[in-house]
Amino acid sequence: MSEHDALRSSGAVERVSERFYSGVWGVLVRWMRVPKEPPTLPVPEGEEVLAIHPSLGFLRYLKFWFWLVLFLTDVVFVALWVALIGAIPWAGFVTTPLWLAIIIVPDIVAYVAIHLRYDTTWYVLSNRSIRIRRGVWIIREISLTYENVQNVRVSQGPLQRYFGIAKLQVETAGSGGSAGAHGGGGSASNVGLIEGIDHAEELRDLIMARVRASRSAGLGDEHAGYLSHDQQGMWTPEHLAALREIRDLALAR
């Protein structure tokens, strides 16, 4: 399935890591009740629902940060270790397993976490709405209709441009909370955060076309029909004719 797309199996290391990763997924699905299948959206018959992960560029983007942070932290730890060996050689050698654990274990965890984050992020798009799911410990899902969208924000940094991805924030008038709409998701709960996609412009145009087509303010407004009655008037010629007859009868008395 798609979560294995990211890990292209070629060598022995890849095969082992793939086995390991599918084992992690087995635990997640079985013991942590993480749904493996994408969320669905109720749509009229015949309409397609698009369920996608972020683009693979997003995975590469996350891994770039992973290697950067790994390099910087491990340089510090190795330097500390070497310093300890230099100062108290026996202590440095005795604590070797500890140092190796400090240097290696968090990296594996973080690397797996990146893949899990990627594989548990689902963007489900229909012609009318978006549903977004993300999270492993806490799984959050947001559903919103394009009709309620207030604005769309597309942002892309230089590094994201290099990886060919962009971040799309779809905002409704829902209660926003703190303005800090940052990656973790959930801080600004009225924002549908669609990060790491490679066709942000298409999606932006699709949503904005919807927003423009709608005459309402996206606030659950009632239909414009109510207003137009007052404007066009309630009295038809028939009414007026009947009223004239009444007037004439009244005058004749």
Binding site: M32, R33, W137, I138, I139, R140, E141, I142, S143, L144, N148, T172, A173, G174, S175, S189, N190, G192, G218, G220
Partner: peptide, 10 residues
């Protein structure tokens, strides 16, 4: 209703 959230922790 503007948006619907479903949240499930472990």
């Amino acid at each position: 209703i503007q948006d619907i959230h479903v949240e499930r922790n472990l």
